[in-house]
């Protein structure tokens, strides 16, 4: 057997395996979408492979779930929480990361040790006191409650410290000679260069906020104040076995992040590959 045929067969086998894997990965998504367009009767019909629902696709499930759960509010809550968390995380972490990565100041090592300790501790340990604080402030079921634990980020501080440390110091020295003070050096020169770390942090923060269920389930029990992820748990409680409606809800919860992912696919995957987040 020639070398060429051999490599061609290897390539075929590899593609075969990868395609099988890809199908397994896709089946739940396909099934979710197909079920969402069926009537309840069709969804439990004897032949589940009767894929195209009798006659026409049913859009009723979407409007029913949309109306009974006020998805517009859920989208708004989730989006606002993500935006606020990303802004807070990027702002606080970029400053702290620069300070820890490039400046000398008292208690620097102690503060960095606190950052590392926070990263190692499972986050569940903070939850009861954080809940008590939010409830003490009378802020349960508000946007503030959703933002609260995400106001600062130890992981982000660490990520940006690493990012700033890898930048060449000549740039900063040149700026210093040109008469820039520390803030100008940070704001005008270093911060734009650390952009890729900030993009990674933004993606992590957004994904984490979007996927988190425990915190919104605890502080936003009211269904008009909660997020998509937490609302799905309630939806499941209400529509128990009406799977087409549940799947319609799941589709609506998944779509926004899916669109963002397909647009920024490269940034998502590379951001994670280069910094190895803690999701």
């Amino acid at each position: 057997m020639g070398y060429q045929t051999k490599t061609r067969i290897t390539a075929l086998v590899i593609h075969g395996i990868l395609i099988c894997g890809a199908i397994i990965m896709m089946i739940p998504f396909i099934w979710m979408v197909l079920t969402a367009f069926k009537t309840r009767g069709q969804s439990i019909s004897v032949d589940p492979f009767y894929i195209f629902p009798n006659g026409s696709w049913q859009f009723g499930n979407f409007s029913q779930v949309w109306n009974s759960y006020n998805f517009l509010t859920l989208y708004f809550n989730t989006l606002l929480m993500i935006l606020l968390r990303v802004i807070f995380a990027c702002l606080t972490a970029t400053m702290a990361g620069y300070a820890l990565g490039r400046l000398n100041f008292p208690f620097k090592r102690l503060i960095f040790a606190l950052v590392l300790i926070q990263m190692m501790v499972p986050s569940q340990i903070f939850i009861i006191p954080q809940y008590l604080m939010v409830s003490g402030l009378g802020m349960l079921n508000t946007q503030f409650a959703l933002l609260f634990p995400g106001m600062v980020t130890a992981f982000g501080t660490y990520l940006l410290k690493q990012g700033y440390q890898t930048l060449p110091k000549e740039l900063e020295e040149a700026a210093e000679i040109d008469g820039c003070n520390i803030w100008q050096r940070f704001y005008k020169i270093m911060m734009p260069l650390a952009r890729s770390s900030m993009v990674s942090l933004g993606i992590f923060t957004a994904l984490f906020a979007y996927k988190d269920m425990m915190w919104p389930m605890i502080v936003c029990t009211n269904s008009s104040a909660t997020t998509l992820a937490a609302a799905l748990a309630k939806l499941q409680g209400q529509f128990t076995s009406n799977y087409p409606q549940l799947m319609a809800g799941a589709v609506m919860a998944v779509i926004p992040m899916l669109m963002i992912y397909l647009f920024f696919q490269k940034q998502f995957v590379e951001g994670i590959a280069t910094s190895g987040g803690k999701l």
């Binding site: 996927k211 269920m213 899916l258 992912y261």
Partner: peptide, 9 residues
Amino acid sequence: LPMICAPAA
């Protein structure tokens, strides 16, 4: 793909 989906969904 599963990584970017809400675990609830």
